[in-house]
C-alpha cells in the first residue's frame, strides 16, 4: 500500500488518505479482505495525527470501502459496483466544480460552458 501525504497542499490530510486508499481499492492494488495497517501504526508511520487517521478509516468504513473486526483490525470490503459508480460520480462533480470556478474567473456564461461541453462531446 502506498500513501503519500502532502502537508503543503490545501487538501485535508484525512481526505488525502481516504482518496488514496479508495483509489487503490478501485484499481485492485488492494485486494478484497486484505488487512489494512492499524490506525495507530499507520499514523505513526506517516507521522500524522492518530485522530486524523481514525477519521479517514471511519469515513472509508461509512462509505463501505472497508470493514472492521473488533480486536483484529480493518479489512478491505468486497467491491461494490454501485459504490464505484457513486465514487466516480463524485469525482465528476468535483471536476465540474472546478470548471465553474474557472468559468467564473473568465466571466463565462452558463450557455458558453454548455456549448463548450457539447462541442467536446461531439468530437
Amino acid at each position: 500500500m502506498t500513501i503519500l501525504i502532502d502537508n503543503k497542499s490545501g487538501m485535508p490530510i484525512y481526505e488525502q488518505i481516504c482518496s488514496q486508499i479508495k483509489a487503490q481499492i478501485i484499481s485492485g492494488a488492494l485486494q478484497e479482505d486484505e488487512a489494512l495497517p492499524s490506525i495507530r501504526n499507520l499514523a505513526k508511520d506517516l507521522r500524522i495525527s492518530v485522530i486524523t487517521t481514525k477519521r479517514a478509516y471511519d469515513e472509508l468504513e461509512r462509505e463501505g470501502f472497508l470493514y472492521t473486526i473488533a480486536a483484529k483490525g480493518c479489512f478491505v470490503a468486497p467491491k461494490n459496483v454501485e459504490l464505484l459508480r457513486e465514487e466516480n460520480l463524485k469525482k465528476i462533480e468535483s471536476y465540474m466544480d472546478k470548471i465553474l470556478q474557472l468559468a467564473a474567473a473568465c466571466n463565462l456564461s452558463k450557455g458558453d460552458i454548455l456549448e463548450m461541453m457539447t462541442n467536446l462531446m461531439e468530437e
Binding site: 490545501g10 485535508p12 490530510i13 507521522r47 495525527s49 485522530i51 486524523t52
Partner: peptide, 28 residues
C-alpha cells in the same frame, strides 16, 4: 509536526484547544 492536539496559551489564558488537523481544515 507531531501533535494531535494544539493548545494556545496567552497571558495565562487558554485561547484555543483543538485537534490540529481540524484547525487546518477549518481555517485558511
Amino acid at each position: 509536526k507531531i501533535c494531535d492536539y494544539i493548545a494556545f496559551l496567552h497571558r495565562g489564558k487558554l485561547l484555543l484547544c483543538q485537534e490540529k488537523d481540524r484547525l487546518k481544515e477549518e481555517y485558511a
